[in-house]
Amino acid sequence: MPTTISRPDFQGSNDPVGHLQRVDKRTISAIDDLEEAPEMFGLTFSKALSTAQLHCLYDPTANKSETWEAWVAAMQVGSALFASATAPEGTTVECMIAHKKRTIPACGVKHFVDAGTWLEAFWLAVICRDQARMTQLCNVPIELLRASGAVFEEYVYHWVDALQTYWLERPGLGEKLVAAFDGTNPDTLRFVDREMMLKVLYPPLDLFYRFISQDPDKFNEALVQAVELHKEYWTADEERESLTGDVAIAPLAIACLAFDAGRPIEVESEYLPENLLDRSWLGEFET
């Protein structure tokens, strides 16, 4: 029997359709502005991702086409951000975002072109099963992510390196993943606290390791633990209860990799929206 991990009840707007339409409109407006203001990519990506997560609060299984559209748009913004960042200065990139082809100037290395943003963009490409964008993201140099000036634990760069190595089938995956694991020691952290590491940041590494180890039982045990720890962290108090934790994005993405590899997924949870996990909407429209 699958393990069920429920999400706390959500008390949303009395007019969910109207609420989502207003949020979608603001997000599209921000996306429209990117053609004139690519320096707003960081805020626009955050807005698009929050909009996708909000859709899953009202639509926990991602059963509605509008929810899929929101997740695709977030994925498209994240990938466009890095396409713009890696384009030569003075050039433009052609990007499909929210059903429209857009011409966006190169933005260069900005503070938001960092490893954390890269991970979010990559997970979204995995969830949306966009292999071309996954490959594009995996060709982003790690040196460029470091150049953003953003401060991260060193393990993050090894984690990005391991994911790029896995997807591009480069040698050295084992060593790079070991380096990422070594950097998660809670006693040596400089920028994140112990609880965040143990409950949110570390579990996806362990889950990914179980995935590449091809042990379905161990994978599902790790998936249960990852989702339970995610829930425990993001529901610990009212301050943490936000859209950030309403979908377990990294565990969901790795579960998508496992699902696509034919592995059984024995966890049911609103934190892993069913129709995103089983790619029900794939091919619904051009992305």
Rank of each mutant, 00 (worst) to 15 (best):
Thr91Arg: 06
Trp68His: 14
Arg133His: 12
Leu173Lys: 11
Tyr155Glu: 08
Thr92Lys: 00
Lys64Met: 09
Leu163Asn: 10
Pro16Lys: 08
Phe259Lys: 11
Tyr155Thr: 02
Leu252Val: 10
Arg146Trp: 08
Glu66His: 14
Trp71Lys: 09
Gly108Thr: 06
Asp15Thr: 00
Gly42Ala: 07
Pro216Asn: 06
Phe10Gln: 05
Pro216Phe: 10
Asp182Phe: 04
Asp260Cys: 10
His230Gln: 14
Gly42Lys: 12
Val109Phe: 05
Arg26Leu: 11
Glu120Tyr: 15
His230Cys: 01
His158Gly: 03
Gly245Tyr: 04
Pro16Met: 05
Asp237Thr: 11
Trp159Thr: 00
Leu81Trp: 00
Asp182Ile: 03
Leu277Thr: 03
Val200Thr: 01
Ala70Ile: 02
Leu20Phe: 06
Trp123Asp: 12
Ile28Arg: 13
Tyr202Val: 01
Pro264Tyr: 00
Val93Thr: 12
Pro88Ile: 01
Glu284Lys: 11
Leu189Pro: 08
Trp167Asn: 08
Gly172Asp: 00
Trp118Asn: 03
Trp118Met: 03
Arg170Phe: 08
Asp215Met: 07
Trp68Ile: 07
His99Lys: 12
Pro88His: 01
Thr44Ala: 11
Val93Gln: 08
Leu173Pro: 01
Ala250Arg: 07
Glu169Lys: 15
Trp159Tyr: 14
Leu168Asp: 06
Asp206Ser: 13
Asp9Ala: 13
Ile97Arg: 03
Ala98Met: 09
Pro203Asn: 09
Gln214Phe: 07
Ser65Glu: 15
Pro2Cys: 07
Leu223Ala: 05
Leu54Val: 09
Lys176Asp: 04
Asp217Trp: 00
Ala85Trp: 04
Tyr271Gly: 04
Thr92Ala: 01
Leu257Thr: 10
Phe82Arg: 07
Tyr271Ile: 03
His99Asp: 12
Glu143His: 05
Pro60Glu: 06
Glu232Trp: 10
Thr4Val: 15
Ala258Tyr: 03
Met40Ala: 11
Ser50Glu: 11
Pro8Gln: 07
Ser79Cys: 09
Tyr58Ile: 03
Pro186Phe: 09
Ala74Asn: 06
Glu232Asp: 14
Val109Ser: 02
Tyr209Gly: 07
Thr244Ser: 13
Met1Asp: 04
Arg263Asn: 02
Gly108Cys: 05
Asn14Thr: 02
Glu36Val: 02
Asp33Leu: 08
Gln11Pro: 00
Thr103Gln: 12
Leu119Met: 01
Thr67Ile: 11
Gln76Met: 10
Ala125Gly: 03
Leu20Ile: 05
Thr184Gln: 08
Thr67Pro: 04
Ala85Glu: 00
